[in-house]
Computed example of a mutant assay.
Amino acid sequence: MTNEISYLTFDVEKLTQFTIAIFEQMGVPAKDAALAADVLIKADLRGIDSHGVARLSGYVRLWQKGRINPTPNIRIVHETPTTATIDGDAGLGLVVAPFAMQGAMEKAEKYGSGWVAVKNSNHFGIAGYHSMMALQKDMIGLSMTNASPLVAPTFSTERMLGTNPICYAFPAGKYPPVVMDMATSSAANGKLEIAQRKDIEVPEGWIQDEYGNSTTDPNGLKKGGSLLPLGSDREHGSHKGFCLSSIVDILSSVLSGGSYGPWVPPFVSFLDPLPDQPGEGIGHFLGALRVDGFRPADEFKQHMDNWVSRFKSAQTVEGQDAVIIPGEPETAAELERNKSGIPLISVVVDDLKCLAAKMAITFPETK
């Protein structure tokens, strides 16, 4: 294997306009295309390259397969003052999830908290985008989604759960918000895809082969293996990762009426959903809590600053300068990339150029 990796850097606005053009070519209305592009570009800006424009060709293939509805009728199908269930009508999760989060925030403004479950959706990008929407209103945001079954539960070799990410976003004062955005598997599938593109091995504990043996082969999933829950194995707490992932699956789809467990529709277009679906599409769960429902917002943010400051000053192990606060690396990446541009590895650039040619859209020049 080789560690030779080449990057090309692109202007943020030009890459955004290209992404919008791809979605519009799929028949997505201009407003929704801009929103979908914003979700993907936000991932690239925050350094979560696995969930940015590298995913574009995957969305196009699903649309070509008829599994994404570019003009969905997103609607509430069940509602109380503080809760709702939304049918995404097979729309882009990049559009459906922000719609749901906006609904949760509106309920929170009136009643202190709002909770929205979603069914019949698709891959929604980074969970952080949706949780962070709540920050603008001095709210705590929560978002999670189930995903294609790639993860085997503890003591199993069968793929039963997705990477099932979960994210909390907390507003702060002088410091950036604290954003905890993570997969409930040992690694997100997107990181595995990056390793495949870079042709490098993955760390021990990410994957097991079809017999349940640990492997560092980035193509282990393609050979019949599975991702492992957070914790990797029972001795290192994988049962806790399994439990967290199960919570995401249940809240996202058992609660909403979406498909769950091994029935969650696969992201890749050449695999069809399993027969006898117990629900409709991918599910999400989003929530918003008004900080001032618990204590004055300014007071809370002052103490969040104190929390951050104290953790940053914690004594560190040898060779480390400071404790890393959740969301801190992503905030730093966003500041830098907004100025310098978005770096993409060459194989992703080649994929996007091929997509541009097929859809008759001009691909932007490097910065």
Rank of each mutant, 00 (worst) to 15 (best):
Q277F: 03
V116Y: 15
P266V: 04
H78M: 07
A97R: 03
S186N: 08
F18C: 12
S186C: 15
M160R: 03
I282D: 08
Q196S: 08
D305C: 02
G162W: 06
M359G: 10
S269A: 15
G27R: 01
D11M: 10
A333Q: 02
D87K: 07
A34M: 07
V308F: 13
E318F: 13
G103Y: 03
R159W: 13
A134T: 04
T215G: 11
K353A: 05
L45D: 08
R67W: 10
T154N: 12
E299Y: 05
D44T: 05
M144C: 04
I345T: 09
V254N: 14
Y129P: 00
G212Q: 15
V96F: 05
F242A: 04
I324D: 12
K42T: 14
E318I: 09
W263T: 06
G225Q: 06
Q102C: 10
A356S: 11
T362M: 13
F285A: 03
E158A: 01
R67M: 09
G241H: 01
V39R: 05
F363K: 00
F300M: 01
F267Q: 06
Y175F: 09
A172M: 02
G66D: 03
K198A: 09
P149E: 13
G112I: 05
R234N: 12
I247D: 03
Q196W: 02
L335W: 01
K367G: 08
G27Q: 06
S50P: 07
K301N: 03
A332Q: 10
P326A: 08
I325T: 12
L40A: 08
I41S: 04
I41D: 01
D89A: 08
K107S: 07
L40R: 04
K191A: 06
I140T: 07
P203Q: 13
M105V: 03
K312W: 04
A172D: 02
M359L: 15
D44N: 14
P72W: 14
T85E: 15
V254C: 12
T9H: 11
G258Q: 12
D138R: 06
G257Q: 10
G257M: 12
P81Y: 09
L271F: 09
Y211M: 14
C167T: 03
R197N: 12
S340L: 11
P262T: 00
P296A: 05
W263K: 04
V95W: 06
I20M: 09
G327F: 03
W63D: 01
T215L: 13
E204G: 04
D87N: 14
F294V: 10
M133I: 00
F23A: 00
P70W: 04
